[in-house]
Design a protein around this nucleic acid. Structure first.
Length: 274
DNA sequence: CGCCAGGGACGAA
DNA sequence: TTCGTCCATGGC
């Protein structure tokens, strides 16, 4: 067990893990435990540091995962184009966009469609408990997110058992697309946002919104503005947009910083509880 | 464009 | 307690 520590400047754990980009971290009075890329970690804030205690404390891995090298003060300046964005960036102070595993993000956001965050978390947890590798840490059992190879022979009915309903067939086809190489992470990483979108959208169960989330949270493509019901709501209320145009309006306003702006707006509007 | 699809969370009654 | 509505939507 080793530790890595990074500055807590522009980095708030609660906002980062609770803003809807990930479904696998659990909080217990300010301390977050979970598994990323098969590595277990406990992450907490002490004084002016974020301390990561891990069974595989690869410093470079955690820094990349937590996006610690990016200048978020600069991002806040870029996206603060009006008083609402000022409020949103203050409210979501310290949000960081995690660089998550591609396959995990893809499967998780296919599950997410037309569902709620507690339900998504429950299904993803069951998937990991059923097919992931066991990782024991501090007297508790944790599970990795299963690889596509591990899910090779999982049937549609098997997927149904984790409570994903009609999405089960999408998950099965997703595993097939990854194993056959029809959908390839490296190809997507090297492609433009537009080309990557084109490829991902050929997958069953991947539409505009799921596609954008996967690119934003796992492929480091930030010039896109995922538009779900909350984003459409806030774009209609405060930016004079229609629901249909919310994505285009957001991307025009925020350009290369669209993904960050969207995340602040989503977190702010969703927690407002109208 | 319109309809429909698990099933849990959540609030109203 | 029960009922209706909604949910980080997409396929057909």
């Amino acid at each position: 067990m080793k530790t890595v520590s990074v500055s807590n400047k522009d980095f708030n754990l609660k906002h980062t893990f609770d803003c809807g980009q990930c479904f696998r971290w659990e909080e217990e009075n300010g301390t977050f435990t979970g598994v990323a890329d098969g590595k277990w970690a406990r992450i907490e804030e002490k004084d002016d540091k974020i301390i990561i205690t891990s069974n595989d404390a690869d410093e470079n891995f955690w820094k990349k995962y937590l996006d610690t090298e990016r200048d978020y003060a600069e991002i806040k300046r870029k996206v603060t184009i009006n008083p609402l964005m000022e409020k949103a960036t203050q409210y979501g102070y310290g949000i960081r966009l995690l660089r998550q595993d591609f396959f995990e993000t893809l499967m998780s956001f296919i599950i997410s469609q037309r569902s709620s965050i507690p339900k998504i978390k429950s299904s993803v947890k069951k998937l990991c408990e059923k097919y992931g590798d066991e990782i024991e840490a501090e007297g508790k059992m944790y599970y990795s997110f299963p690889t596509a190879q591990r899910l090779k022979d999982v049937s549609e009915d098997d997927f149904r058992e984790i409570g994903v309903g009609y999405r089960a067939i999408y998950l099965k086809k997703c595993v097939e697309d990854i194993l056959s190489g029809r959908i390839d992470e490296k190809t997507l990483l090297n492609a433009s946002t537009e080309k990557a979108r084109e490829m991902l959208m050929t997958m069953h169960g991947v539409g505009d919104k799921v596609c954008d989330c996967v690119m934003l949270f796992s492929l480091a493509k930030y010039d896109l503005f995922p538009s779900d019901v909350w984003i459409k709501r806030v774009m209609c209320e405060s930016f004079g947009s229609s629901e249909k145009d919310a994505k285009d309006v957001g991307e025009k306003l925020f350009g290369d910083y669209s993904g960050f702006a969207q995340q602040y707006l989503f977190y702010y509007r969703r927690n407002l509880k109208d």
